[in-house]
Each structure stands twice: as structure tokens, then as C-alpha cells.
Amino acid sequence: MKDVKFAFDKASVRTYDADGKLHVELTPISKANICVYYGKEIPCWEELGLIPDKAYRLLRDPEELRKAASSFNNQPLLNTHIAVSVLAPPKEAIIGSTGESAEFDGTYLKNSLVIWDVNSIIGVENKQQREISSSYRYRLDMTPGEYEGEPYDGVMRDIVCNHVAIVPSGRAGPDVFVYDSLPTGLKLMSKIQKLMALFKPHLANDADPEEMEKKVGEIIKDEDDDGKKNKVAEDELTEEEKKKLAEDEEQAEKDKLAKDEDDKNEKEKMANDSKLAMDSAIKGVEQRFAALRQAERDVRPVVGELACDTAEEVYRTALKQMGCADHASLPSAALQSVFKAYSRPAMANDSTSINHSSREAVKAYFEGK
């Protein structure tokens, strides 16, 4: 891999707005390079005949990244990798967003970022969580080759971004990180300063922030002292009291395990509900598509081809072209029946009997209801 040096003496690209959100003007979010993936990490690995525990060297091809750049715009920024969908967005993990001007410079795919979660901002500032890892769909082309002198086993093609994450260590490498020299505005906050950031908006205008900060520090110290006292007190317990304490702790652990199991079951239920909702949505789309194709077949011999998005629109348009005065007011459920009754005399090109048939068809439909 080529050595990469960044000009850290330039003006900072990090800024903070009035609400404390961190804005990064431009930063690498992915890179054209070769990364190692185990077979089981690769989509459709079984269909491709890959070995689950074998390491494969895959290339993020520069041209594929260039074509995919726009898909990295306005994507959720997470503090971990969780697939994002509209049915079950990982709300607790979303900490910000990518910008809307992604660009590829031949090596790096770059974009702006905004981070609005204080813990993630601190992680970025103290460099504990600052490398960027993008998550995307792709089609694997298992054609081996060589890139910049390094061999690879396959190429990622047709890349489409799902989300971007800020993690302790990313696969693209340590040079794909939240780009900056020294930050401006908000600095790394200590535990006390972090608490103060929450308290200050609620302080009276005449309150002294430094005095409040001192009091918060005293509270934390008192808590630490209480913890030490509790430890001493525990050492002075009788055997019976220690036994009771151990039983309470054991029960608390059981309660926690039971709660964890309930949470797990609830998540599984939510996942199943999401799958059912997705299956239902897909079935609905398939049914609408089938109805549209049927409507097109029905009207084609009478009015020819119609470019419409729904079966209802097809029937209404056909009836309108055939001179049906009621085409706009007919209920959706009646359209196919009315059209079929209406179109029979239309084949004889008799406009008088067409209108008469239309009225009779509409009347018959409502009387049947």
C-alpha cells in the first residue's frame, strides 16, 4: 500500500454549530484498495462456491467507487454496523449523517459528515472511535487480477451504499478516518464537563457555571467515597448477612438474565413482524403489477396501448377515450366490469349503443351492490 501523508497544518475541517453538533467539511469514507474477507462474510458465498473460513482478497475497484459515489449521499451515520431499512431503522445506533456531495479522487471516496451524538463526538476527539467503515451492497466478480502490484481474488462491482459507520478500526485502513488537524470550537470533555454540557442550558442566567461545575465535581467525589464506605461496610457483615447479600446478588443476576431473554424474544418478534410486513408489501406490489398487466390486456383491443401506472388508471383512461361520461366517478371496484360491458358494443363502432350500454352497465353494477 502506498504511504499517504495528510497536510495537517491546513485550516481545520471540523466545526461545531450552536447546538454542539460536529460538522466535518470533507473526509475519506472509503478507498480503492484490496481488503481481506472470509468467505462467510461475502454475500451469496454459498452460491458462489466459496469456502466459509478461507480468506479472500477483494478489490474495491476505483471505477466502481466512482460510479457509486452518489449512493453515499444523505446516508445514516452509525456507531456500529447494523443494516439500515425503513422497516426497522436502528435508531439508537444512528449518530449523524453523510453529506450530499460525495466525490471520488481516484483513490479516496470523500464526503462531508455531521455527528450529533455527544459520546461519538468524544470518541472522535480522543481518537478511540474515528476510523470510517462504509457498508454497501455489491455484486462479486470472482475474476482474479492485480492492483498496484498486489494480487486479488475478485472485484466488488455495482456498489450501492447502505450506511456509513465510525468504528475503532476500519477495513479500508487507518487513512480512512474523520479528517482533521486540531479541532475548533468544542474540545474533548472530561466527565465533569460532559455533565456540565447537559446542565448549562438549564442554569439561571445569574448562576455561576464554574461554581456549578465545582459542585458537580463534589457530587462525583461523594459518590466515589460512598462506594469505598460501602466496601468497608461489606467487610464488616456477618456470615448470615453476607449469605443474604449473595442471594440477593444471585437473584438480581437471574432477573437480569430473564430480562435479557425477554428483550431477545422481543427483538426476534420485531424481526419476524418486519419480515411479515416486508412479505406483505412485496405481495401487494406483485398483485398491483398483475392487475396492471391484466388491465392493459383488456383495453388493448379497444383503445390500443396505454402507458399508465395502475390498473385503475388504465380502465379510467380507456373509458374516457371511449366517451364514457361516468369514467371519473365510478368506484375502483366497478371499473373492470363496466369497461367489459362498455367495450362490447364499442367493437361494432355504434356510439349510441355504446353510451346506452355504459349507462346500463353502471346501473347494473350499483343495483347488484
Rank of each mutant, 00 (worst) to 15 (best):
K215V: 13
V302K: 03
L65Q: 00
S274T: 14
Y16Q: 06
E250K: 15
K259R: 10
F104W: 05
L113S: 03
T184K: 14
K214T: 13
Y16S: 09
L78E: 01
A328K: 13
D175C: 06
D279H: 03
V303Y: 01
D180W: 09
E100I: 09
I29V: 05
G96K: 05
H202T: 10
A277K: 09
R157S: 08
K187E: 15
K54Y: 04
V84M: 00
Q251K: 12
E296A: 12
A290K: 11
A307M: 13
A334E: 00
D117V: 05
E41G: 04
E367M: 10
L26N: 11
P331W: 03
Q321W: 11
K242N: 02
P209F: 05
D273K: 07
L87T: 07
T27E: 00
K275C: 02
C35T: 13
A83E: 14
E236C: 10
F72D: 04
I282Q: 08
N79V: 07
S358E: 14
E305R: 15
K231H: 12
E131H: 07
V160A: 03
T107W: 04
K264D: 07
P331Y: 00
N230Q: 11
D158H: 02
E236W: 13
L306G: 05
N349H: 14
V36L: 10
L77N: 04
A207L: 06
S70A: 12
E223M: 15
A197T: 08
A69L: 07
F199P: 04
L65V: 05
K243L: 09
H202C: 08
Y16K: 00
P62E: 05
K187H: 13
G368K: 13
H202Q: 09
I132E: 03
H81W: 09
I282P: 07
K229C: 09
K215T: 11
E218Y: 12
K243F: 08
A246T: 05
V302N: 03
P62M: 05
V114S: 03
G99I: 02
P62F: 06
K267R: 13
N119A: 14
K369V: 14
D19R: 12
K259W: 08
K200Q: 10
M347W: 10
P301K: 00
S70Q: 11
K275P: 04
C161F: 00
G323D: 03
D17Q: 04
F8Q: 12
K215W: 14
V84A: 03
D309S: 15
A88Q: 15
D175F: 03
D273V: 06
L109P: 05
V314F: 06
V118Q: 11
R57H: 11
F6S: 04
Y179M: 15
D206K: 08
A197L: 09
F199K: 12
G123N: 06
D19K: 12
L237D: 04
H327C: 06
D19A: 09
V178L: 01
K259M: 08
N272L: 15
T310V: 02
K283N: 10
E234W: 14
T98N: 04
R344P: 06
Y16H: 12
E47F: 06
M1A: 14
V299S: 04
S12R: 00
A252S: 09
V338M: 02
G173M: 04
Q75P: 00
G173K: 00
K10D: 11
E261L: 12
A328S: 12
P43M: 00
K214H: 13
V302T: 10
I132G: 01
F289S: 14
S332H: 12
T15F: 07
R293Q: 15
S120C: 10
A172M: 05
A328T: 11
Y16P: 02
